[in-house]
């Protein structure tokens, strides 16, 4: 069933993606990720020596600071910081640099829907730019559900407000491997179908959620192709800047 979207996209079409890295001179790694009009700037500093008091000194720790476009830092920002921190902790290899802190700062340049996924993608690209060792990349997507149960990907802010429910999903990126097919499957499902993070808003049925998951997988494959291409093209001739 065709849904008419204000900007003329189809249900499964994402907004144009753009990623530029190494845009801040002083930061060890930085990236600017935009999906349509939503733009987020991420900067990574680290690894720096020492961890905070309650943290485990046998692992590296990650600190996230979220700066909204306007206004003061409130509960929503603290929630985003916690989600990002946990997500990034799960993709970094924490045992390589124990007793260090890597700090990731996110600045919202413009919010036009799908803000948290854009921020996660930006943070991931910035971590790659800084040369922090990662297990795999994280690819984030926003799926929303209309009243009739159809799934619309990457909604803009107006669309988000009209939808019944929407959710942010983060998957590991798809793997191009030289090993044979079966080695990276867990319980018959490929590794990139596992969810790193899921945050939902609004009420939906369980079947709708699983339906969204499938659409999310397909979309994340496209985003991870884009990420791979953009990282490869800029990887040549860029010396690492980690201190």
């Amino acid at each position: 069933m065709e849904i008419d979207r204000p900007d003329g996209r189809t249900q499964n079409q994402l907004r144009p993606l753009a990623c530029s890295r190494n845009i801040l001179n002083r930061a060890h790694g930085s990236a600017r990720w935009s999906q349509g009009d939503t733009i987020v700037l991420a900067a990574v500093y680290g690894p720096k020596a020492g961890t905070k008091k309650n943290e485990n000194p046998e692992k590296a720790s990650i600190e996230v600071i979220w700066k909204p476009k306007t206004g003061q830092v409130g509960k929503a920002e603290k929630e985003y910081e916690l989600i990002l921190r946990r997500t990034l902790q799960s993709i970094c290899v924490l045992t390589i640099n124990p007793n260090t802190t890597t700090s990731v700062t996110l600045q919202v340049v413009n919010d036009d829907g799908s803000l948290l996924p854009c921020a996660i993608n930006a943070a991931c690209a910035a971590l790659v730019d800084a040369g922090i060792p990662l297990k795999h990349l994280a690819v984030a997507i926003c799926c929303s559900l209309t009243g009739s149960g159809s799934v619309v990907l990457d909604p803009s802010k107006l669309e988000e407000q009209k939808m019944e429910a929407f959710m942010y999903l983060v998957f590991p990126n798809s793997v191009h491997s030289v090993l044979p097919e079966g080695s990276l499957h867990v319980d018959g499902e490929p590794m990139e179908h596992g969810i790193i993070t899921s945050v939902t808003h609004g009420v939906m049925s369980v079947d709708d959620y699983l339906h969204c998951l499938e659409r999310g997988h397909a979309a994340s494959a496209r985003i991870s192709d884009f990420l791979r291409r953009s990282l490869q093209s800029q990887a040549l001739g860029n010396p690492s800047k980690a201190a």
Binding site: E160, A165, G202
Partner: peptide
């Protein structure tokens, strides 16, 4: 769905 204005 989206947050309302934050004025108290």
């Amino acid at each position: 769905m989206a947050g309302k204005a934050a004025s108290v």
